[in-house]
């Protein structure tokens, strides 16, 4: 029989690893069709997520991000290599006590209300009634869904589902939160709210491991980023290092007079090896502009 995904826990105490996630030489091969053709979804992938940081795994659709994430969550088994969560094998059920997960476009039981959903997941985590009640109220407030606590999820918008999904992921006060495309299908307002929540979680000391193909979003929240393509890690490192163009320097001036700009240009011209690449008024991002125009008021707290 193939090895089961759930590993039987031992009663031995676990030494806490400084690494929240540790993926070593992970390979995942899928068999397709009756003839047993193979597709390599993840190929010898290795990366680490340090406790307390926000790590983003980015790549186009089908690059192996979600597969790697599912292995880390114990929903899938590695064909080769290993994945660990706080030093525990990802198949060990104890790892799930400290892990929260928000899948892409989550669907929860439509027949449950927001509060009931959180209580259902809290009970699955073995939380006590009183604690669960308090935690539910706290999370509903945190994700801004107190007003919809008693409404059934069938009537929630996509953004609201994403927020209740995030609350669900946080219910048992996990130390690691795994987010798969956390803003997929959510409008910029909702997207920004989720981004703010992620940053808040980081400030609270929670490790975030997220997968996304939206680079802008990753850029805004991640401390470190891994770029995955065709199942392989192409580049990895701190975000600033990755996106910095080493041989270029940008300067943004406010209220600069034409005389000052003229002087700067003169100085540049005097340097033989330096060339002015671009000059002009900086542009805000489209997202920022949209938010400024639409604002939160129109939404009335709902996305």
């Amino acid at each position: 029989m193939s090895e089961v995904l759930e590993k039987n826990p031992t009663e031995e105490p676990v030494e806490t690893s400084p690494l929240a996630v540790e993926v070593n030489n992970l390979t995942k091969v899928f068999s397709t069709g009756i003839r047993g053709d193979h597709v390599v979804a993840v190929d010898n992938l290795s990366f680490e997520v340090k406790a307390g940081e926000v790590y983003g795994l980015i790549g186009p659709n089908g690059s192996g991000k979600s597969t790697s994430m599912k292995v880390v969550l114990g929903l899938m088994q590695a064909s080769k290599g290993e994945a660990k969560v706080f030093g525990l094998d990802s198949g060990d059920i104890r790892a799930r006590n400290v892990t929260g997960f928000l899948p892409e476009n989550p669907y929860f039981y439509k027949h449950l209300s927001g509060a009931e959903t959180l209580q259902f997941y809290g009970k699955l985590c073995g939380m006590k009634r009183k604690d669960l009640k308090e935690r539910t109220a706290e999370l509903l407030e945190m994700v801004g869904l107190e007003h919809a606590a008693k409404r059934r999820l069938g009537g929630y918008s996509k953004g609201m589902l994403q927020r209740i999904g995030l609350a669900q992921a946080l219910i048992q006060r996990p130390k690691l939160v795994i987010l798969d495309e956390p803003t997929a299908g959510v409008d910029p307002v909702g997207s920004r709210e989720i981004r703010d929540l992620i940053l808040k979680l980081r400030d609270d000391g929670i490790t975030i491991f997220l997968c996304s193909h939206l680079l802008e979003q990753v850029q805004e929240v991640c401390d470190r980023v891994g770029i995955i393509f065709e199942g392989r890690m192409r580049r990895e490192g701190p975000l600033d290092e990755l996106i910095a163009i080493e041989n270029q320097t940008a300067m943004t001036l406010e209220n600069a007079s034409p005389e000052l700009l003229e002087k700067i240009n003169e100085l540049i011209k005097a340097e033989e090896s330096t060339k002015l690449v671009e000059q002009g008024h900086p542009r805000t991002t489209l997202e920022r502009m949209f938010i400024k125009i639409v604002g939160r008021k129109q939404d009335g707290g709902k996305s």
Binding site: L73, G74, L75, I93, R94, R96, N97, T99, G100, F101, L102, P103, E104, N105, P106, Y107, F108, Y109, Y121, L124, C125, G126, G165, Q168, A169, Q172, I178
Partner: peptide, 11 residues
């Protein structure tokens, strides 16, 4: 995909 969220809890 409700199963993902259930099985990613200690279940």
């Amino acid at each position: 995909r409700t199963l993902y969220t259930i099985l990613s809890k200690p279940v």
